[in-house]
Structure formats: C-alpha cells, structure tokens
C-alpha cells in the first residue's frame, strides 16, 4: 500500500515477508532518515535524530548498513550476548521474579521494571532499574511511536530530554545498552505479559515446553521505518525517491512464522540478542513451570 501527498508524505508499507526481507537487504532502502520528501518524513526523522550522544554518536539501531562501527559493535555484542549460560546465571534473580509473575500474576516489583533491570544487567551486572528509569523508557517509546501531540508535549515539558539523559546515564554512555533498556525492552515486556496470559489458560504451564511457549508468545517488533534515497525497485515494486518505507515485521512474521523475522535472523541487521532473548524467555518459562510443580 502507498500514499503520496506531495509535500506532505510519500509512504509505502511492505507486509509480504519476501518483500520485507528483500527491502531490508536492498541497497535502495536505507536505515538513516533524511527528513526530505515531506512534512511527515521530516517529523519522523526529527524524532529519531534525538537518539544520539552529545558528541553525535548515533545509537546502533539507527546506523546504516555500511557503518563499520555498527557492524563491529554488532559482532562484539553478539559475541558477548552469546555467553548465555553466564548471562542467565547473572540475571537469575530477575528471571526468577518474572517466572513468579508468569505463574502467579503478581510480583514485588512491576514486571516491566524487572525486565528493564534484566536487560540492563546483560550489559552491566550492577544495572539497577527503577520506576523512574522505566518511566523514562516509556517516555522514549511514546516519543518514537506516539502521535504528534503527545510527542510535542514530551518535548515541551522537558521530559524527553530528562528521559534520554537518565537512560544514557544508567547505560554509562553505552548506546547499545541505552537502546536495549529504552526501546527494545518493550517487546520483552509484552512477551512476558503474553506468557502470563498463556500460563493462566488451561494447564498450559504444565503442558507446553519452553520452545512452544516462546513460539506462542514472542512477536517481532510491529514495524520498522526505512527510506529510499533514490528511486529503485524492490521485489519488482517501484519505490520513488525519498519514500518512507514501513516494514510491517509482525504482520510479515505472522504470514510466515519461523523465518526469524523477530530478529532479522538472516539480515545484515540481525539483532545481537537473537540467542539470549529466547534463552531468557525459556528460562523464565522453565522456572515458572518448576514453581508450579
């Protein structure tokens, strides 16, 4: 589907799994947004432009394919997050608490804060999440995906800057950690919530294996945004220059589950947490299951 209103927006949604994968790999489609092409493009680019350090260091999720620092960092992080046994041990208190939540529906601390702390501790063993840090993450998520009025208010009130500063401070300037604890964590929070609902129905907790539970609850991010710098073809479809390309990941994943779209498993931008996230979820389900028995 496409919309073109000259001066306002030029937009294309891709939902077909093959198209999504092809667009992601295509040289025609870029990750960085120029803000050119229409007012909507400008507004979205301006939103994403805040995710950089004071010296201009862009967060990894917004870096281009050919960015050597991105690929080096991705490789480094992938290696660090591949130490699943060590990491699972490190975040055992958090996975235990989340397992209790999945099993009983209640915890001492809100589960989203536990998730944020768990994610943070993958980077720093002493990362401490709090209500403030989670509110900051939520504010940033709202900034990214909220409507213009909400975003405007966030900026006007100074909450955006405060949130960003807090997240980056807690992440000790590590942009990968900042991205994980501010943006990426929300998908995990939603997955834990789905696990809880899954566990409540019938006797799923006893019946389902961790892998089955993950399959039933883990989703891809709803969508990611890309841009064409110049006109070009993707899967035979012509995309005009400066088209905002929305890759509807979850929609594509549903059409073809098991292709790894949750983590862009075969793409250049494969999520470095592609091994640790399923391991964490499996651990949570396993512990919840053990608690129930």
């Amino acid at each position: 589907m496409r919309i073109t209103i000259p001066g306002i927006i030029r937009l294309a949604w891709l939902t077909d799994p093959d198209e999504v994968v092809a667009a992601n790999d295509s040289g025609v489609v870029q990750r960085s947004l120029s803000g050119l092409g229409g007012l909507v493009q400008r507004s979205i680019a301006a939103k994403l432009a805040v995710f950089r350090k004071a010296d201009g260091d862009i967060w990894p999720a917004f870096r281009d394919r050919a960015d050597r620092l991105r690929s080096d960092r991705q490789k480094e992080l992938e290696e660090a997050l591949a130490e699943t046994r060590t990491l699972l041990k490190r975040v055992a208190p958090e996975t235990g608490a989340l397992a209790a939540y999945v099993r009983t529906g209640s915890t001492n601390r809100p589960p989203e804060i536990i998730v944020q702390q768990m994610v943070g501790r993958l980077f720093f063993p002493d990362y401490a999440a709090s209500e403030e840090s989670y509110d900051a993450a939520r504010a940033l998520q709202t900034w990214v995906s909220g409507g213009p009025i909400k975003s405007y208010l966030l900026k006007l009130s100074g909450e955006l800057k405060r949130s960003l500063d807090l997240i980056v401070t807690l992440a000790r300037g590590d942009t990968s950690c900042a991205h994980a604890t501010a943006i990426a964590m929300h998908n995990l929070v939603d997955t834990i919530e789905r696990m809880r609902r899954l566990a409540r129905r019938r006797n799923n907790l006893q019946k389902l294996s961790p892998q089955e539970a993950i399959l039933a609850t883990l989703r891809a991010p709803k969508q990611v945004v890309r841009e064409t710098r110049d006109a070009g073809r993707v899967c035979g479809k012509h995309l005009g220059a400066r088209t905002l390309v929305i890759l509807r990941l979850e929609c594509a994943r549903r059409q073809n589950p098991g292709t790894g779209l949750e983590f862009f498993a075969n793409g250049w931008n494969r999520c470095p947490a592609h091994a640790i996230v399923p391991a964490l979820l499996a651990d949570v389900w396993k512990k919840a299951k053990a608690g129930a028995e």
Binding site: D55, R63, D64, R65, A66, R68
Partner: peptide
Amino acid sequence: PREPWLGA
C-alpha cells in the same frame, strides 16, 4: 582513527 559519529 574514525570518530563514531562518522557512520558509514
């Protein structure tokens, strides 16, 4: 040495 903000 490349500064991180240079991107690609």
